[in-house]
Design a protein around this nucleic acid. Structure first.
Lengths: 226, 226
DNA sequence: ACGCCACCTTGATATTCATCAAGCGGCATC
DNA sequence: GATGCCGCTTGATGAATATCAAGGTGGCGT
């Protein structure tokens, strides 16, 4: 049982530099959990004493406005961790809601315990700092996107990011409504933007199936050149 | 000379847990620099091999869109560091522009050197991780603000954050145009929002001098209750 | 004190996007 | 196969904010 956990954890960079003894200890304190589709993991404001590694599935991180509007901050997919940066705060509370988009398996790790172990693994500290650094860069890019770019730009660049390099055809792996919120547009607007891109002959969409016809034009849209 | 630098650095948490020898070494490799009003420090995309501590003045961090629009990400004031999180990235490039808003003094520190020193000061690692953690939380709050709140909300909460707890009168310490960009509204819109708040009797503004008449009402606006 | 310049304000208009309301279509259930 | 639900789409309208275009206004140097 603990072996299965170890096996999972070893997949992730954060655990790569631990000694076997440390990994054992981490695995002993870790728990495997399964979530159904739509099942919440934690809510914004809950005390944050654990962080998570996604073995399989997709976890939606979102925030709720007082009026009840939801903004999806990110979708975490298999092989990634989340909430690990909270380990270092004083009275840590999760700043977001976490919900499974599809049936998912997670490993949950005790933050305090892991932090204690970090003191004996400076290499892991550095890995973790690199990780946080990238997240910071990502969030700054996100803010840039939100304040400097139109909805169309955001949709276009997201599609480009989703699309495999060498293949013009692919499937959207998350519901359009969720994707819309991720990009900070309403579902209606998202739909219209996609329609617009189709009418311009840049791509076509059938359900979740996307076919890009003119990648260059799509890149232009992503840059904001009408 | 190096003593002056040491004195400055000791003010900041990041250097609090270094041994005297480590602090000496950091100070030797550090440089003091002065910027005139409006003088750029680095540009978005420049190779990022140093980070900075603000001794006095204000540094504006901003991003530029392809069309030339500027979005102010943050204003760093005396006693704070910035760009330290880039230390852990591979081919680090500054993700923002940095410019002095007023004549400023900075200490610049060699990232690679400091990172090397970090290996011998796990305590400092933890301080740094706490620091990054807070920044992450701040950026998430920022994204929340941008996508879930109106311009008026953002202005109202910013004013509340600026205002001293116990005093209803204070001065805006940065130009309104810069503040507008910080809050992701155009200067015209910013001006109109302020006018609106004045017309509602919530506050009055004369130049940079702000007087809050009804703090409760301002808090309501900040929450989005019209 | 004068004039200049940068910053801010104000007004009129245009654009983007949200909201409201309705219809469509697939998919699961019965 | 009918029923109903949910997610998506489409249309019509409205609100928030940007843009364009003129004025203020204050600070600063001469």
């Amino acid at each position: 049982m603990s072996d299965e956990l170890k096996h999972h954890l070893q997949q992730h960079l954060l655990f790569a530099r631990l000694t076997p003894a440390q990994l054992d200890r981490a695995a002993q304190r870790a728990r495997l959990l399964k979530l159904d589709e739509g099942q919440p993991l934690f809510a914004q404001g809950d005390p944050a004493d654990r962080f998570f590694y996604v073995v399989s599935g997709q976890i939606k991180l979102s925030r709720l406005s007082p009026e009840g509007n939801e903004k999806v901050i990110d979708i975490v997919s298999a092989g990634n961790t989340f909430a690990e940066a909270l380990m270092f705060l004083e009275g840590p509370a999760y700043p977001v809601n976490a919900t499974a988009l599809v049936p998912s398996e997670l490993v949950s790790i005790d933050s305090r315990d892991f932090a204690a172990m970090l003191r004996d693994s400076i290499d892991t500290c550095f890995l973790l700092m690199g990780d946080m650094s990238q997240r910071l860069r990502g969030l700054i890019a996100e803010i840039d996107n939100l304040s400097l770019q139109s909805g169309t730009c955001r949709v276009a660049s997201y599609l480009l990011k989703m699309a495999p390099e060498d293949e013009d055809q692919f499937r959207l792996d998350i519901p359009k409504g969720v994707m819309a919120s991720r990009l900070s547009v309403k579902p209606e607007t998202f739909s219209r933007i996609l329609r617009n891109l189709q009418d311009s002959g840049i791509l076509s969409i059938k359900g979740a199936q996307v076919t890009i016809h003119d990648r260059d034009a799509l890149e232009d849209r992503a840059e904001g050149l009408t």
